[in-house]
Simulated scan of single mutants.
Amino acid sequence: MKVSLLGFCFFIMGVQSALAQANKAGSANAEQEIIRLSKDKWRWMAEKKADTLAALFHDKAVFVHMGGSWGKEQEVNIIRSGGIHYKKADIQKVSVNIIGTTAILLNKITLLAVVGGNEVTNPFEVTEVYVQENGAWKLGALSFTRLIGQ
């Protein structure tokens, strides 16, 4: 009986270890998926692919810029009209934290953009929040924080 109980305990510990490793692998895969999605987003912004971005942005998404904050419809219209043209995001650093069905990505970037007809370059820490719904990631928030002295 003691041998069976001991064997059962080792079996349970092995299952727990395997599940923990599977969770780590799943989390790493999700992190890579979010990083790829963020890079695609920057490319779509540069290419002014407003319809593709509209599909990525959650209907309740919020966008925080140096000049104000607004929702999905206004952000898509600004990109479509060229009010802001995100020409190139030079990504220097990226990190992702996943909490349940929410992913928080931080990008340290230098952004080359055309705003109101003027070309500007600014260093930013950009926070992107993605939420998973029905197996798909949607951008729920995009916030730019200008870095001083960069």
Rank of each mutant, 00 (worst) to 15 (best):
M13L: 15
I12S: 02
K87G: 12
N122C: 05
I148Y: 08
K49I: 04
V129Y: 04
W44I: 03
I78A: 08
V64R: 09
L53K: 10
Q21G: 06
A136T: 00
I109T: 12
E119K: 07
A113S: 10
E119N: 06
L56H: 03
K41V: 03
I84M: 12
W137Y: 01
L142P: 00
Y130S: 00
L5T: 10
V15Q: 12
S69C: 06
E47P: 03
K93N: 13
V129W: 08
I79D: 01
T121C: 07
E119R: 09
Y86T: 04
M66Y: 09
Q21N: 11
G71W: 09
T127G: 03
G67S: 11
D90Q: 12
T110H: 03
E133D: 01
I78M: 10
Q150W: 11
L142K: 07
H85L: 13
P123C: 14
G100L: 00
W137H: 00
S27P: 06
S17W: 13
S69N: 06
S17E: 14
E31K: 08
L111Y: 07
S17V: 13
W44T: 03
K2N: 06
V129P: 00
A30M: 12
Y86W: 05
T52A: 12
G100T: 02
A25C: 08
F10T: 11
K108Y: 00
V115K: 10
V115E: 14
G149T: 06
K41H: 04
S27R: 12
V15L: 15
K49D: 07
M1Q: 03
T127I: 08
K48C: 03
